[in-house]
Amino acid sequence: MDTIIESSSVGLIKPGVIEPIKVEVQNTISRDDRTTVGEAFVDDPRMTLRNVNVFYGAEQAIMDVSLDIGKRQVVAMIGPSGCGKSTFLRCINRMNDTIDGCRVTGDIKLDGEDIYHPDLDVVSLRSRIGMVFQKPNPFPKSIYDNVAYGPRIHGIATNKTDMDEIVVTSLTKAGLWNEVKDRLDQPGTGLSGGQQQRLCIARAIAVNPEIVLMDEPCSALDPIATAKIEELIDELREQYTIAIVTHSMQQAARVSQRTAYFHLGDLIEIGDTDQIFTNPRHPLTEDYITGRFG
């Protein structure tokens, strides 16, 4: 009996776990220090978020986060699961309003206008800030109606010709036009996962938003579909401001200009993507991007 126990306990130890930890000399910040390091603010911001706190009931999900989102750039938000990056993203277009018991404090401004002001209309806000979700969620309607829905409810297109034009441009921008131009009347739910997500992007940009929020848009997709979406994000950057939450650090490195690292509700580090990935200043950021945890 003894021998068996011994052998199994030996088998549990995997090679490589007891790798010697590299000691970084240049890091002087302690792991317990949660104040944000890096350049949180930019010169000409599109959105300014100051001292944002989010509570789910009594639990605090986001702790005093401040950052800027600049014009025509992609801001990536990375961090381990449950760090609050999706919650933070959903503050930007007030999607958290729909969750019972969720409370947002702080100061969030779009072009200097407080988006949590009681007089602000949330419907018009969401037409200015579009959103793409983690799971592709096309409406169970035709491809055409999926894209046309936003412009229709906001009264953007007044006649059929205008609407057709919006649908064609949006699908073209989303890189989906060539694949679906012959079957616009077929249900959007019949497309493949990657196509569905691009349809959702087309749907979001059809209302001509100023900012597009993307909540892990590629997590349900295969690498080829992911590559297409990433290419698309790069093209959309020329026209829109984009905030993207992602689990993939490679993706953040590929598509974004600025990166924010969240840890347990705190914004730990923010800065140029190149700098974050090559020379992180905070030890937690470094732990995460080198794959030590997360």
Binding site: N93, M95, T98, V123, S124, L125, R126, S127, G130, M131, F133, K135, N137, P138, F139, P140, Y149, G150, I153, H154, C200, R203, A204, V207
Partner: peptide, 12 residues
């Protein structure tokens, strides 16, 4: 997800 999609587009 359908509700979120509609709300995210600015539907009331």
């Amino acid at each position: 997800s359908i509700r979120e999609a509609a709300l995210g587009l600015g539907a009331s």
